[in-house]
């Protein structure tokens, strides 16, 4: 028998956390419950965060947006600030799971699951997201790339809770691009994905670029080399193809039931090439 507690505030949460040291904490539960069912091992105590009021907010604060850890994907998708400032994130959210999963799943949960295939992660990497980690008596902010350490492992320490995500408004990028290759059009786990932010001059010369790939390494993969190599070149087929070898060197995919490593490597490069078809028009999700 498993008892599920649903604290209404962080104060209540800290009390429960102390009382039930062995408890597992969950947000939407869309990953955890699948895992528990597969293992057929249910812990005696679960703590659900759905009622914690401090984790629900989505606020704009001086040039940045704070997203509470328990903001569901559906809420984020319908939020005007998210769609306006972070179309790359909105686009990724739209590709995530299915409507029921987006209704339950949260941004905090997707981050803490720390799957290399987590759909919101590549956008958060290119957007330079910071995660806010709280303890009973304090908090810290950590860049997402330092928070996620490996598949399923994070820098979360004992007694810490991921309380939210900070995103700086990124209106300087003219192209927000996200593409996921899955085995079907919905309810698909990424075989490979790419989030890209690019700014070009009036004449189409790349001024800055940020790339992050999902499902092609133990964590989300970025490549400063590939980004640097593109700067100064006209955004087009030739320039994008020229950085494919750098991309392919940067990724370290594996074979699994969904796809081979070789296919994933090819996709990592090809998803960048896709930008050639996008022209200069800003891509709004």
């Amino acid at each position: 028998m498993t008892t599920v507690y649903r604290p209404g505030s962080l104060d209540e949460f800290w009390d429960m956390r102390e009382k039930y040291g062995e408890a597992l904490v969950f947000a939407g539960g869309t990953d955890l419950f699948v895992k528990l069912r597969a293992l057929n091992k249910y812990p005696p105590v679960l703590i659900g965060l759905a009622g914690v009021k401090e984790l629900q907010s989505i606020e704009e604060l001086s040039g940045a947006v704070f997203i509470g850890a328990h903001a569901t994907h559906t809420r984020l998708l319908s939020h005007p600030r998210i769609r306006e400032h972070f179309p790359v994130l909105a686009s990724a959210l739209r590709s995530l799971g299915s409507p029921p999963i987006r209704n339950m799943g949260t941004i905090g949960g997707n981050i803490c699951t720390a799957s290399p295939a987590g759909d919101v992660l590549p956008p958060l990497y290119v957007l330079g997201a910071q995660v806010e980690l709280r303890k009973k008596d304090g908090s810290r902010r950590v860049p997402i790339r330092e928070f996620i350490l490996g598949p399923g492992t994070t820098a979360l320490t004992d007694g810490e809770l991921l309380s939210g995500v900070w995103l700086k408004k990124e209106d300087s990028f003219t192209i927000h691009h996200f593409e996921k290759v899955g085995q079907r059009k919905a309810l698909a786990i990424a075989v490979a994905s790419l989030a890209a932010l690019v700014t070009t001059t009036e004449t189409g010369i790349v001024e800055k670029a940020r790339f992050a790939w999902g499902s092609v390494g133990p964590t989300v993969v970025t490549s400063q080399d590939a980004e640097d190599a593109l700067v100064g070149l006209p955004l087009g087929l030739k320039a994008l193809q020229s950085i494919v070898p750098i991309v392919e060197r940067s990724v370290s995919p594996i074979d699994d039931v969904r796809a081979s490593a070789a296919y994933r490597k090819a996709l990592a490069g090809n998803l960048v090439v896709r930008l050639a078809g996008r022209g200069r028009e800003p891509l709004r999700a």
Partner: peptide, 11 residues
Amino acid sequence: LSTYIIPTSMD
């Protein structure tokens, strides 16, 4: 059904 991929209405 997470690895055996049947089409969804989107497909």
